[in-house]
């Protein structure tokens, strides 16, 4: 791919991350499927903290993950982020180690790491969409 196309995608994914990234905060705040309007609700009576409520509680987060709308938002956000981050790393590293061979190594290793992160993150989203791990 021409460098101008790649960098155009870099700018566009940057702007899309801004949209989807701010949406993904709403999942644990304004649009959270819970009545507790707080991030953490602790029970500290026994000395040790235990999480008994709040939007970051397991059941609240699970309710977010199992809805198809949020699942697709997270999946899209992950796609854009992985591209933006690893293309950024590729640019930084290929400026650091310029040259034909080293740039090939950088490009392919960044591609592999990006795929690993993407599959790992997608696994979480897809499994949770189908009802959760446990």
């Amino acid at each position: 791919m021409r460098e101008s196309r790649i960098m155009f995608l870099q700018y566009m994914t940057g702007l899309l991350i801004l949209v989807f990234g701010s949406m993904h905060f709403l999942a644990i705040s304004a649009l959270a499927p819970t009545s507790d309007k707080i991030l953490y609700l602790y029970n500290s009576s026994s000395g040790a903290h235990t999480l008994i409520g709040g939007t970051l509680n397991y059941y609240s987060v699970k309710a977010v993950y199992t809805s198809l709308a949020w699942g697709s938002v997270f999946e899209l956000l992950l796609t854009f982020l992985v591209f933006h981050v690893f293309n950024g790393f590729r640019v930084i590293l290929s400026e650091q180690f310029p040259g034909g061979t080293s740039e090939k190594i950088i490009t392919y290793s960044m591609l592999i790491v990006a795929l690993i992160i993407f599959i790992y993150g997608s696994n979480t989203i897809v499994v949770m969409l189908n009802g959760g791990g446990i």
Binding site: Y58, Y59, V61, K62, G121, T124, G133, I134
Partner: peptide, 8 residues
């Protein structure tokens, strides 16, 4: 976030 697969 992948730890959500491990249960509550």
């Amino acid at each position: 976030t992948s730890h959500i697969l491990d249960g509550p």
